[in-house]
Write a protein that binds this DNA or RNA. Structure first.
Lengths: 113, 113, 113, 113
DNA sequence: GTGGTCTAGACCACT
DNA sequence: GTGGTCTAGACCACA
């Protein structure tokens, strides 16, 4: 849910989250190194580290010192549950409000889905 | 589409836009004074002025110096068209993406609508 | 509990915590600005911001955008409780262990207290 | 004085020091081989070697090439004296400071000792 | 090689 | 003025 105006580190965080949710990074897997991820996304390593840090704080990944960052067991499930909760509680009500305010047609919006 | 973390001036802008779209402020109507609006929303008058300025720049309201700000003819229609366009082009694709990534159920989401 | 080898941002965090615990910064008070605190302690503003960020994440201070950071109600009490818990659970057992391993005398250690 | 967040090599060093102080490793005794110690503690042999190296640098053990590392005469006494000095000079003042800042009760803390 | 920390300096958004 | 973000570049601790 981050657009091009969002801070880079939040967009990176979103990219990592998507990777975990899609099963590209599974429990036990090592995440791309900070440097590799930074190079890949044209960002500063410190910015990537900031994104990674959030996942560590939330208990989705663990740091093995001098080795790398690894996805923890249960991370995909817990992450999906947390993001669903946020979407339903925070985003969806505002979406519904906007659609009704703009008098948009749900059927038309959902056509391409 | 703005939550409590959004910048104040964007939330204020959203509130004004909603007023115009809902017909509370009709063409020819005078918007609340900056001070009144600021007091009502617990915001800094300067921040309110910034929100108003945006509407003026976009041609939805005009300033009559020493009197106040007035909604221009056609503002509701043009505003609705612009916001719809933004929603469909910018917001909706990201919403669809998020729903699919989280494997959420459209029917369930739309139940409460 | 941070020595001169600890990361700067953790020592700064400790200094702020001590200020809150001592009542120098009370609920409602504004913390020193990032820049002022950085100048005072000879540190980089970003490092100070990192220390402040932790307090924000833990709900001890709130950010009023464009204004500053303010101590939240209950922060001193909650902070003291949390630090006590950490001391008792994490630090104290290791202290006891060390004293016994080194066969140090409690009475002598406590003489100057 | 090292918790689970401390660097591995410092925790290993602490484990060796504790062994010497407790009399498990006496002067003339051979320390476990790097590999054995690494396996026992689930650590990288390189990390163990680093911890051993520190003891060698401080003159508590000597290397007999091709044979192993041996505790030197006087090592327990000198080690105990050095650690006591560090504890009293570095750690204890910070402990006292923390207890007073947190307004903890010495009697209660010492109850379990 | 890995992540962690720090600086210097810059720009931005907000009030 | 405030905090937030980002970069470039550096050094360190660790395995």
């Amino acid at each position: 849910m981050h657009n091009e105006d969002s801070p880079v580190y939040l967009r990176l965080r979103g990219a990592i989250a998507a990777g975990i949710l899609r099963g590209e990074y599974r429990p036990g897997d090592q995440l791309p190194s900070v440097r590799a991820f930074a190079a890949e996304h044209g960002a500063n390593p410190l910015t990537v580290a900031k994104a990674y840090q959030g996942f560590q704080d939330d208990g989705y990944v663990e740091v093995r010192r001098g080795i790398g960052m690894f996805v923890l067991p249960g991370a995909p499930e817990r992450l999906r549950a947390a993001e669903r909760e946020t979407f339903r509680r925070v985003h969806w009500p505002r979406i519904v409000e906007a659609v009704e305010l703009l008098d948009l047609n749900w059927d038309e919006l959902l056509e391409r889905v």
